[in-house]
């Protein structure tokens, strides 16, 4: 059992210790904003923050994150850096196919956290590990500079530019009844399996600090604990 903080919530997970963090996030926690691109730490599509530092989750064994805090694009919430970056990304219409953009934004957020006003050289250094096959690099560069300005003057950001269309039902994922009946649940434990057992998440809205470390909740899962107590 490996425990870590995932987007601010405690997770206990029972998988092979060498399973990369990426596949724990995607296949077990079912959070898909973090992308699979190369599996070798060469493209940056899987970039997440580990205790605030950008790492390639496709080559990070889950055992190495025990007791640490993992943040994905979904967990960045309304942090100043990410809000500024998203605003700038929309202002410059950065995404094309969009597949690499979670990783780009995570790398850029880590850069701004360290250097709120980065130079072109800083951007080169921080972003060179993130490939974009659509070639959005010139816009990424401009948008990072713009986000730095917005960080310094957050008032400009408040205007907002929520111009997206509604993609809620873009892809039909509901399967016909017959399909659901035929689709038996994945066996949770194949003989000898160490995979597939994930504790339920506790809703984000629940006050984290009120619960005592390790206390079992009514649903049999484990309550979130503060980071310091994990190890």
């Amino acid at each position: 059992m490996i425990n870590f903080l995932f987007n601010g919530e405690r997770r206990d997970i029972d998988v092979a210790p060498d399973m990369p963090l990426l596949w724990v996030i995607r296949d077990h926690l079912k959070i898909t904003g973090t992308k699979f691109g190369c599996g070798k730490g060469l493209c940056g599509a899987c970039t997440v923050h580990l205790d605030g530092t950008p790492v390639r989750s496709c080559v990070m064994p889950i055992a190495a994150v025990a007791g640490k805090s993992v943040t994905t694009i979904e967990g960045m919430g309304d942090s100043d850096a990410m809000t500024s970056l998203r605003h700038a990304w929309l202002e410059y219409s950065v995404p094309q196919c969009g597949y690499c953009q979670s990783g780009q934004l995570m790398a850029a957020a880590a850069l701004l956290a360290e250097k709120p006003s980065p130079s072109d050289g800083d951007i080169d250094t921080a972003m060179t590990g993130n490939l974009c096959r659509c070639g959005t690099y010139p816009r990424i560069r401009k948008a990072i500079h713009r986000a730095a300005q917005l960080l310094a003057a957050p008032g400009e950001r408040d205007a907002g530019n929520d111009t997206g269309a509604d993609f809620t039902n873009f892809v039909e994922v509901k399967v016909p009844d017959a399909v659901e009946q035929a689709a038996r649940p994945v066996p949770q434990s194949v003989p000898g399996s160490r995979s597939g057992q994930v504790s339920q998440a506790v809703p984000v809205s629940q006050p984290v600090r009120k619960s005592r470390p390790g206390q079992a909740s009514q649903s049999g899962t484990v309550q979130p604990v503060e980071r310091e107590s994990l190890s």
């Binding site: 998203r86 995404p95 929520d162 111009t163």
Partner: peptide, 9 residues
């Protein structure tokens, strides 16, 4: 129109 859903994952 698709930029929004591509900056949030």
């Amino acid at each position: 129109l698709d930029a929004d859903v591509k900056v949030t994952g």
